[in-house]
Design a protein around this nucleic acid. Structure first.
Lengths: 243, 243
DNA sequence: CCGCAGCCATAACCAAAGTTAATGCAGGAC
DNA sequence: GTCCTGCATTAACTTTGGTTATGGCTGCGG
């Protein structure tokens, strides 16, 4: 069980200090662990969950389906991310969460989260901070969708995912990485068509920026990729300070 | 002073109950009031503010400037909205906040906000909720930018602004409204060029959906506008319930 | 009154990305 | 092995929205 919240603790410790009591409180707040198969939904739009879920293993997305059947992914979650911590206060899900790969999640009953807010103000602020990081990422995606070209946007997404994975000890700019995300899903994330995602990937390959075969992705030239993306990791707030 | 936090209290009461003590605690946490002229910045990217600001009067935007000089607005704030409540925990601003019109804001020193999180768990959860609503709006904008046409997107933004204004008692679908936002700013919000914003507005006028003269906007056919936008106010979480 | 700035409007042309459709390939079911 | 499904790839063509440029209007400072 302790290892299931390990990625979260890493993520927290990258931004602040987690005391032994707080770590214990988190662990005590955890309910049952659940697994989901790739392609299944963890929660659906309209649901009113009584617990929030933390990804321990696997990749998930938040998404909305539109009337014409198109989909827009609004967030990608990695191990250490809560997929719906906001449901604790928001109550009714305004989007669905799906598994990109097989996933293992730790559930946190809302009554336990509430207890944390009553007894552990600092830990509560850190949980609040986790939702604020989601928000900062949303803003960055808005900037990318509004003002960047397909190439820049894709480069930005890759830089972000590699950076976020490295925070939880799951990746490294210089090593190849398994990304369980196909071109349709990339399109739904970036607001592009599958065809255009393919064109853009071809361009990135032709320019020796990345390799991407199946689910294996490798960044060949981080400097140039980050330059194209104008990637600046400030918005991920990676400095540990008292909050 | 009490009237300066009135819009916030309305916004809160639309989602939960605010006790007299909580209202008093909010009021006690408020620091100096400040005014800003239209076009000036309330905070800038990179700043590390020691207080958060609540809009009492006027309209503000959060925005990022990109390397090539383009701008993307990531949020529009109305009276009752905190423009940078997240700076309390995020610390370093990852975007700027500018005044669309002359504004009057109430400041909340971070030490006072911290005190609220130590002593008033329920009020803290409501403040947390305010940031979660920002997040939900960000997601809706991502969906709009990724999957909606310029017309749909603009229709959606109008529906959202009218709805949010009505929550704080400043507007009404059926009445005209003063929106201090020009076509350049609309473009920077929607990720469109000024020319295309103009074309899209012309189309909305031609279809008798709205009138927009100077800063005076009127919705002529809410049903049709909301239909075009596929506007569903669920994401604004307008139900009062214990949180 | 004149000149200027800010904003809106419009035209002509251009480019990025969408659409439709066809092909190929790898892996799993049987 | 054969069929099927999911996914990647590519071409041809279309559309949406971007770019550049111009003109007009209004309000304001001097």
């Amino acid at each position: 069980m302790i290892e299931d919240i390990d990625a979260l603790v890493r993520k927290l410790e990258r931004r602040d200090t987690v005391s032994p009591e707080e770590r214990a409180a988190l662990l005590a707040a955890a309910g049952p662990m659940i697994t989901f198969a790739a392609g299944t939904d963890l929660v659906r739009e309209g649901d009113r969950p009584d617990r929030s879920m933390l990804v321990a293993q696997g990749f998930t997305t938040r998404y909305r389906l539109l009337g014409d059947g198109t989909r827009q992914i609004t967030a990608i979650h990695l191990p250490g991310d809560f997929v719906d911590l906001h449901s604790f206060l928001i109550r009714t899900m305004d989007h669905s969460v799906g598994a990109l790969s097989a996933c293992r999640v730790v559930t946190f009953p809302h009554t336990n989260l509430r207890m944390i807010t009553e007894r552990y103000p600092h830990l509560s602020r850190m949980l609040w901070l986790m939702t604020l990081l989601d928000s900062a990422i949303h803003r960055e995606w808005i900037v990318a969708m509004g003002r960047r070209s397909a190439l820049e946007q894709l480069a930005h997404l890759l830089c972000e995912i590699f950076t976020r994975l490295s925070v939880v000890g799951l990746g490294d700019r210089d090593r190849e990485l398994i990304l369980p995300i196909n071109q349709t899903e990339l399109g739904d994330t970036l607001g592009l068509s599958t065809v255009h995602v393919n064109r853009t990937l071809q361009q990135m390959r032709a320019e020796h920026l990345i390799t991407w075969q199946g689910q294996t992705v490798r960044i060949l030239d981080w400097q140039r990729l980050a330059g194209i993306a104008e990637f600046d990791e400030t918005y991920l707030h990676l400095d540990a300070e008292a909050r």
